[in-house]
């Protein structure tokens, strides 16, 4: 114990110096955060004013008195932007599109990925390429022929026509394929020794194992579906099928048209269109970030 001097030594307390580099880092980050937050925040404060003020003065920095009134009118009154629907119906349609798209995509792509990864199929490679070629052409590129196809099938102004064509791409399948490939080989072998057939293995082992991945994909797909604009614009001409994001077009038109000066309501509806995906992304951000960064590798 001779060398372990534990008596109080000549203490040099750590100097609390201001690190200007760190201050600069925070300044940049605060500036960046403001850049991202201010526009939607100003939209919210402005939505709390009456139409005349907004029309005359534009964006408002402070909260006004009409927040509840404007949101109530936007959500529960027919007319204004669209003549036959209120905000609640559009909100419901948005949820149908977001959830329907996410669930449909996950179910269909998980099944396909399972078939491709876990079965000895002669045409597995062919199926793989047929499916993955769809990664190459986004819907926007083939929008016109896709629209024609839906029209010929008589699916315009239906939820099927709204949702199913959006599922026709391989992003989900690709993601689940990557994930299944990373699952240890021994797991399937162990399951076979334990007497599990392919269907039991899928339901009892692979699906529970994929829970986090499914959650991550669900968030990404829900946001993707909710935020669809071009496709719903083409497919839904009947206002009772309008989603909130689809309805933005009407909001924009009404905003620029001085005949209907319901600016407060327009802003309120735009904010409602933002809230659900934002809430999901913020609250489940760990899953979301994981899903996003891992799916594309």
């Amino acid at each position: 114990m001779a060398d372990t001097t534990l008596e109080t030594p000549a203490v040099i307390p750590h100097r609390r110096k201001i690190r200007w580099g760190t201050v600069g880092d925070h300044a940049v980050l605060i500036l960046g955060s403001l850049l991202m937050i201010l526009p939607p925040l100003l939209a919210l404060t402005t939505a709390s004013h009456d139409a005349v003020t907004i029309h005359r003065e534009g964006l408002q920095l402070t909260l006004g008195d009409d927040l509840g009134k404007n949101f109530h009118a936007a959500m529960f009154e027919k007319g204004g932007f669209t003549q036959t629907v209120d905000g609640m119906l559009m909100l419901m349609n948005s949820f149908i599109l977001g959830v329907g798209f996410a669930v449909g995509k996950i179910v269909i792509s998980m099944m396909a990925a399972y078939a491709i990864v876990y079965f000895r199929l002669r045409f597995a490679t062919l199926a793989f390429w047929i499916i993955f070629t769809t990664l190459l052409l986004p819907l926007e590129v083939r929008i016109l022929p896709s629209y024609e196809a839906i029209q010929k099938l008589g699916l315009t102004n239906t939820y099927t026509g709204l949702i199913v064509p959006l599922i026709a791409s391989a992003t989900g399948t690709f993601f689940f394929r990557q994930f299944f490939m990373s699952v240890p080989e021994e797991l399937a072998e162990a399951a076979r020794i334990d007497g599990a057939g392919p269907w039991k293995f899928f339901v009892d082992i692979l699906v529970p194992l994929s829970q986090t991945m499914i959650a991550a994909i669900f968030i990404i797909m829900f946001v993707f579906g909710w935020n669809q604009y071009l496709w719903p614009t083409l497919i839904t001409t009947d206002e009772s099928f309008f989603t909130l994001v689809r309805g933005i077009k009407q909001i924009v038109l009404s905003y620029t048209d001085s005949q209907i000066p319901e600016h407060g309501q327009a802003l309120a509806l735009a904010i409602v269109a933002m809230i659900p995906p934002v809430v999901i992304v913020v609250f489940f951000q760990n899953w979301f970030v994981k899903g996003l960064t891992e799916s594309d590798k």
Partner: peptide, 29 residues
């Protein structure tokens, strides 16, 4: 996978929904 299952109809059934959607809403257009 090395430890693939040998079943034939199950994978076909699993692949069918995806292939059909792709055929109708991707390859045809």
């Amino acid at each position: 996978k090395r430890a693939g299952f040998d079943n034939i109809w199950l994978p076909v059934a699993l692949l069918l929904p995806q292939l059909m959607i792709i055929a109708i809403f991707f390859y045809w257009p």
